[in-house]
Structures are given as structure tokens and as C-alpha cells.
Design a protein around this nucleic acid. Structure first.
Length: 350
DNA sequence: TAGGCCATCTGGTCCT
DNA sequence: AGGACCAGATGGCCTA
């Protein structure tokens, strides 16, 4: 998956040449070092400069330098930089390599989380992946739209719902989303559940869609597929579908697609809290006031349809929490294959 | 071919 | 000292 990076190759070759070979480079006629600095964006204030200090240090040692006017120049303040010995060079190189590996790993983790987020978006397609930025935008819109459904009774079949979903998205993404909503969901459910659980029926596993479950959105006159697919398991919540018990632990084995969250047990879910605290202006602000309850409704609606939830005995809403859920955990928990997660048991208290 | 998207490397900063 | 996080730079790939 990792494609070879020309720069990486270059850098690996150059590794060590910018700094610890400064002596050699600077002694040559050509301006190789400045070329390399320019090419890789190293500034005079950067490490190359530090290397120069090292070089100077070698020359100056501990003596005070003499300025051009013959007056002694005071020694530079701060900790004296150590000479770049071979051992230090090697140690630096090893450290850099390790740091690169960590950074790669970190970014992979970030991308995994983003992938998990993509999977719970209303349009998920393995072939046509949403870009990172569009995924985040759509996720925000999706949460917003669902909260509208619960708070304002906005119909998931209305233009307004789709408008909310597509707000701020690029035209291709908007088309994708609209196309998904247009197509309905049943086939997708199959694909996803089969992927993760080897199930062939839409009713198995976490939640399941009723046979023939279909959303019919007004045709916006969009271009033809290929589009991604509407995630049926999301919409069935919106439509009040009451599937099999999500508390059934035996269904939890379907959650193999995503690594389990190793962190502390779910704190009181706080999406609402996060929304309540949000400061940045949004394109949707001014259209409605976002209340902490919206997020709670959202959470609840993913576990139980709102209509069913209303009848739950003694269910209580959670207080907004200072905790923030890791993104991948938050959405994993809502993913169809994770709806049976035991963590979800923390949503309600009786 | 330009532009968008992405992966990777890198140095800086903060924290433990 | 070392790890996590971040942002900038760079080059590759893909598509209109």
C-alpha cells in the first residue's frame, strides 16, 4: 500500500548529509547543502543552522571569537551544543527513523479512524471513497440532519434532510449522497454484513433491515450511478424500525471489522457536550440553535428508534460530560456491526 | 497538464 | 531523552 516515495529515497540518501556531513559539504565548491536545504524546505533557523553551530563550535571551541572590528564577541548564550560525533550522528539517525515510523503509524491510525467514519456515513462505497475532508463534512452534516429529524420532526424523506446532508459538500459528494439516498439501501446491508459477519440476510447481525426496506427520496434529477450506497441500518433507526435486541451479546461477534477500543470504558457519552461547547461558526448556525439534547437524541436513536425510546421505562439522559470520545470509538459504536457493543449499554440507566 | 488528494518525511513544540 | 502531536514541504497518483 505504501507507495515508494521519491523524496523518501532521496532523504534516506541524504540522511545524515545535511547535518553531520556539513563539514564535507561546506568544504566543497558547490552549494550542495543550500540546494538540499532549499529543496527540502530547511530554513536558516532550522537544524542545518544548528549543524553550522556545531561546525562553528568545532572551530571556536571554548574560546571567545574576535569580531571583524577586532573586538571580542561575547560567547553565545545557552547550552553549548555538543559536537556531532559519529555516535551521536548514528543515534540521531536512529531516532529519526523511529520517529518516522511512529508518525507513519500515527497517520495510519488516523486514517483507520477515518475509514471507520466513512463506513457509518449514509453513503459508503468501497470503490468511491470520500476524501478525508468530505468525510468530516458529511459526518457533521449527518449528525446535524439526524438531530433535526429528532428535534424538529424533519422527515428523512424530505428535501430538507438531504439539503442538510449536502450542505457545504462538494458537488461530486453531494451527488454521491443524493444518489445514495435515491437508490435505497437493501443491497448495501447485504454487502456490509456479509463483509463483516458472513451473513447473507439483511435481518441478521446487528439490527438488520426489514426486507424490502427502502427509502424513496424525491428524485433530484441527479446523474446516474455508480454511487455509494445508503446505509440501511442507519435509516431504519430514523424510520423507527425496531430490530432485534441490540443488547444481545451473541451478536457482538459481528463487530470484527473494527478493532476494539482499548481505552477506558465509555464515559458518559458527550457528543452533546461537545456540540454545546462548540465555538466555531458554522454554515448552519443561525438556522437553528443546537441544543445538547440533540446529540443525546442522536445517540439514543442509534440504539433505539426514538419512538421506542420514548417508551423505555426510566431511561435517563446523560449529563454532558467533559470527556471526549475518540472519534473512531464514537462512530464505531454506532456502526451497524457495533450496535450490540456492550459499551452501548452505558447509554441508558434504569 | 493543472489541480486535488494523499502518503511520507521532517523539524518544532509540548509534555512526561 | 523520548514520545505525541502538529504543520510545512515534497512528490506520486489520478482525473477532468
Amino acid at each position: 500500500m505504501t507507495k515508494p516515495s521519491g523524496k523518501a529515497a532521496d532523504v534516506s540518501e541524504l540522511e545524515g548529509s545535511l547535518c553531520w556531513l556539513e563539514d564535507d559539504v561546506s568544504s566543497q565548491d558547490g552549494d550542495d547543502s543550500s540546494d538540499m536545504r532549499a529543496r527540502y524546505g530547511l530554513t536558516a533557523g532550522g537544524p542545518a543552522e544548528l549543524c553550522s553551530d556545531d561546525v562553528d563550535e568545532d572551530e571556536e571551541d571554548d574560546e571567545e571569537t574576535i569580531g571583524p572590528d577586532g573586538e571580542p564577541v561575547p560567547k553565545r548564550r545557552g547550552p553549548k551544543k555538543k559536537k556531532m560525533t559519529k555516535v551521536r550522528q548514528e543515534r540521531f539517525r536512529v531516532r529519526r527513523v523511529k520517529a518516522n515510523a511512529r508518525e507513519r503509524s500515527r497517520m495510519h491510525g488516523l486514517n483507520d479512524a477515518l475509514d471507520n467514519l466513512r463506513r457509518v456515513m449514509p453513503c459508503y462505497s468501497k470503490t468511491q471513497k470520500l476524501s478525508k475532508i468530505e468525510t468530516l463534512r458529511l459526518a457533521r452534516n449527518y449528525i446535524w440532519a439526524l438531530s433535526e429529524v429528532l428535534d424538529s420532526g424533519l422527515s428523512t424523506e424530505s428535501h430538507g434532510f438531504m439539503d442538510l446532508l449536502c450542505k457545504g459538500l462538494s458537488q461530486p459528494t453531494s451527488n454521491l449522497v443524493a444518489g445514495c439516498l435515491q437508490l435505497g439501501a437493501a443491497p448495501v446491508m447485504h454487502g456490509k454484513l456479509e463483509d463483516k459477519c458472513g451473513l447473507s440476510g439483511a435481518g441478521g447481525g446487528g439490527g438488520g433491515a426489514p426486507a424490502g426496506h427502502h427509502l424513496s427520496f424525491p428524485s433530484p434529477g441527479l446523474p446516474s450511478p455508480p454511487y455509494g450506497s445508503l446505509e440501511a441500518s442507519h435509516l431504519l433507526h430514523m424510520k423507527g424500525f425496531k430490530g432485534p435486541s441490540y443488547d444481545n451479546p451473541s451478536s457482538a461477534e459481528c463487530s470484527g471489522g473494527t478493532p476494539p477500543y482499548d481505552g477506558p470504558l465509555t464515559p458518559p457519552l458527550s457528543i452533546s457536550g461537545k456540540f454545546a461547547l462548540k465555538q466555531e461558526p458554522s454554515p448552519m448556525e443561525g438556522e437553528r440553535n443546537y441544543t445538547p439534547h440533540a446529540g443525546q437524541h442522536y445517540l439514543s436513536s442509534h440504539r433505539y428508534p426514538s419512538s421506542a425510546m420514548a417508551g423505555l421505562p426510566g431511561h435517563t439522559l446523560f449529563q454532558p460530560s467533559r470527556y471526549e470520545l475518540p472519534l473512531e470509538m464514537t462512530f464505531d459504536s454506532f456502526a451497524p456491526s457495533h450496535m450490540v457493543s456492550s459499551q452501548m449499554g452505558t447509554i441508558y440507566s434504569e
